[in-house]
Amino acid sequence: MADPVIEREVLIEAPVQVVWRTITEPDRMSQWFADRVDLVVEPGAHGYMQFGDQGGPVVVEMVDPLARFSFRWNHPRDEEPVAGNSMLVEFTLTPEGDERTRLRVTESGHELRDWPDAEKQRYTEDHQGGWADFLDGLTNVVVERQLG
């Protein structure tokens, strides 16, 4: 079970097919994501994204056409990305009628590992807001300390 670091969503006035193509076709990805995208959207495919003079490998994890697309990145060079050494980015598309799509993206880090299920459950319940709350908490603490 992944614990999202970032969870954002947007409502798009376009059918799910159009949104799917926008997020998965390399020539379109290069318009919203990296400057250059070499990637075949197939499970297990290895690709590369170039950002300015930086870049990094990406590996496609899951492709469920029109519904879900995920990839891993930010793993150490010369290592295969797995849970624990990389970040998982996952897009989820949900049609809302024929002309609208809700697009959600999560970026998650390490898994909740080595914990008994009951503890995972409790932790998840304790942290419903997950990272958003944690981030708010951190920011508040930082601001309070700076003011104090």
Partner: peptide
């Protein structure tokens, strides 16, 4: 950063539509 990307995806998809 993700908000900006999502905003761009929205713009691109809506324009394509």
């Amino acid at each position: 950063q993700w908000d900006r990307r999502l905003a761009t995806i929205k713009r691109l998809a809506e324009a394509a539509h």
